[in-house]
Amino acid sequence: MEITSTLRLPVLLLPPLLAALPVWATEPSAAPAYDSTFVRQSHRRAVFQFDQRFSILNGKVVGINGLKGGIEWRGRWRAGLGFYRLSGGVPTRIPLPEGMPAGTRDDVRFRYMVAYGEYVFIGNPRWEVSAPLQLGVGSYYTKFYLPNNSVQRSSSRVLYILEPSVAAHYRIFRWVGVGAGTGYRQIAFTGKRPDDQLSGIIFSGRVKLFLGDFIKVVRGHERLFSQQGLMPAK
């Protein structure tokens, strides 16, 4: 009798004990929700992008072509170098130099190198929103198109660039995506400040090549145009 009653006591107490346990202790664990805080990567990887920017200079919308490459840490930090150049000339506000014949057309051009840093503050494997900051140095000059079809140019002058912005991108496939952003370009000059307005709001469009992921896809003989790695875990 003692043995029987000793074995039955835990069985009789089991329902009350189970009822007292929290729900997570009695139910099978659910799959973790899809976290869109940021993209978690435990390693470094190379990033590379074509960066097409637009800006309003001297009242004209112009394009600025750029090429950037760098390293990404843990999916949140990026840093690297880039090069940008004005895709076409911008009509200047500077009076023609003495000696230039009537009918001469002139425009200003510039190019610059940048060091950039970028922080991703929200995103997932498919999309992200980040805050890039670029610091650069470059040069600008003026081209003169004379009525006799000859071309002259002024001497180059140094300029310094600060570009804070906000950007977002969306991956079409694992190794390539498209993006856009907006920000402000602040330019400082050495010597006398020119009459041309080169600072202003910028708008950007970009095609991003995720070089590290592209190499993995090729080496792993994976499908090039698949959605693998971009869909939420079930």
Rank of each mutant, 00 (worst) to 15 (best):
S5A: 10
R8A: 11
L9H: 08
L12P: 03
L12Y: 08
L14M: 13
P15S: 09
L17H: 14
L18E: 10
L21N: 07
V23I: 10
T26V: 15
A33D: 05
S36P: 02
T37H: 09
Q41A: 14
Q41N: 14
R44W: 08
V47H: 02
Q49R: 15
F50N: 12
S55W: 01
L57K: 00
I64D: 01
N65C: 03
G66Q: 09
G70N: 07
I71G: 11
E72S: 08
R74W: 02
W77H: 11
A79V: 13
G80R: 13
L81A: 15
G82T: 06
F83C: 02
F83D: 00
R85L: 07
L86Y: 03
G88Y: 01
V90M: 02
R93F: 06
R93S: 09
I94C: 01
E98G: 10
G99P: 06
M100H: 09
A102W: 04
A102Q: 14
G103Q: 12
R105S: 09
D106T: 13
R109W: 00
R109L: 11
R109F: 02
R109I: 04
M113N: 12
Y116F: 15
V120I: 05
F121D: 10
G123T: 03
R126F: 05
W127H: 05
E128S: 15
L135P: 03
L135R: 09
G136N: 09
G138I: 03
S139K: 13
T142D: 05
L146K: 14
L146C: 09
L146D: 10
N148D: 15
Q152E: 12
S156V: 03
R157P: 05
Y160G: 00
I161R: 05
I161C: 02
L162E: 02
L162Q: 04
E163G: 01
V166G: 01
V166I: 06
H169K: 07
Y170N: 08
R171C: 06
F173L: 14
W175S: 05
W175G: 02
W175L: 07
G177E: 02
G181T: 04
G183M: 10
Q186P: 04
Q186K: 15
I187P: 02
A188H: 06
F189H: 04
T190K: 13
K192Y: 00
K192D: 10
K192I: 08
R193T: 14
P194W: 00
D196A: 07
L198G: 06
S199E: 06
G200S: 11
I201V: 12
F203Y: 09
G205A: 15
R206S: 12
K208Y: 03
G212D: 04
G212F: 00
I215T: 10
R219I: 00
E222N: 14
L224I: 11
F225G: 12
F225P: 06
G229Q: 11
M231T: 15
K234P: 03
